[in-house]
Design a protein around this nucleic acid. Sequence first.
DNA 1: ACACTATGAGACATCAATGTACCATAGCAA
DNA 2: TTGCTATGGTACATTGATGTCTCATAGTGT
Lengths: 187, 187
Amino acid sequence: MKLSDPRANRSRQALLSAGIEVFLVNPHASLTEVAAFAGVGRATLYRHFETREQLIQELARESLAMTDKAMQPLKAQKLKGREAIEAMLHAVMPLANRFHFLLSLWSIAEDDPEVTDIYNRQLDEMAELVEQGKKAGDINTALTTTWIVTMIDCLIYAGWYLVRDNKCDAREAAESAVQTLFSGIRA
Amino acid sequence: MKLSDPRANRSRQALLSAGIEVFLVNPHASLTEVAAFAGVGRATLYRHFETREQLIQELARESLAMTDKAMQPLKAQKLKGREAIEAMLHAVMPLANRFHFLLSLWSIAEDDPEVTDIYNRQLDEMAELVEQGKKAGDINTALTTTWIVTMIDCLIYAGWYLVRDNKCDAREAAESAVQTLFSGIRA
DNA sequence: ACACTATGAGACATCAATGTACCATAGCAA
DNA sequence: TTGCTATGGTACATTGATGTCTCATAGTGT
């Protein structure tokens, strides 16, 4: 089925954003709940997404694509090293809700090779930034790149966590992350 | 049923460690899989744990108790500030596998008030260490305690992640975490 | 040896979610 | 208007996991 009608697009979009909102609150939510939240019949959901897994993987792909999009301007500026990492953190923090649901559903999302491909590429790009930072003298070469990349990944997660719980806004989270990442917490 | 036989203890232990190993690989694993992995009949599993949720919450309580146990010696030494935090990171890193599964199943574990109580107490204790560190002049008072606690939580997660994937051992992870936490990644 | 208790195996009922099929209706494009 | 397409609603079959129950067997403490 093609589903290229304006109606079809509306339904599809409604389902995707319902998926994000519903799974954010309850990762074990059923497709019945998602369809209901989208204001769409359950049968229609199955017309757009063959299985539960496919819906989740579609959400993952869409969210990863949003990250790429958020990173595009800073790639265009050809920032390097520390500046690039700072810009990256600021670009990515506002996507908190968009991604938080993924953490619970990653074991499903990663069954899709396209999802893991994109994710690994993004990690590689981050590693590339770190290497540049090391060459530029911004970053301590005694720490492994693997560690730093994992660390940045986790800082982003930490930021998302606080943002989602309204403990701070995306900008504050990014600033704290930058500060801590480069200078640590020492007085 | 009391289940106080030696056999009962063996079964119980087998089930608990099977739970950790199986859920670590696949958070959606069924109780049939857990029982099979434990080399125990499915019925026996139900004799020890009424529901799936109860098993998971039991695993969570047990793991949190292990954290308490790992922290005990350093509490006894009455370490303060930076030293205390360093010791804590070293104590906690080896528990990687023990906890990694919990991240996926937290939405179930946190339905148990006892679990959240313990977890919140541990976060409070960590906040206490941070406050001490601030007073002792070890830690930058410009950063909120909330942020730092979240940050430490994430460093532990980052370490566990690498340890689980055999990218480094627990000691290296703890050392990297300490270094990064206090001094950042700056050259 | 004896009484007791936990176990394994399997049968069974239940339940919730998944996925399919059909049809009348309403939106769309020409 | 007319033919096409997506939709909602509903009924239905299927599946997989959950939890209960029973019984013969084997381990345990005395």
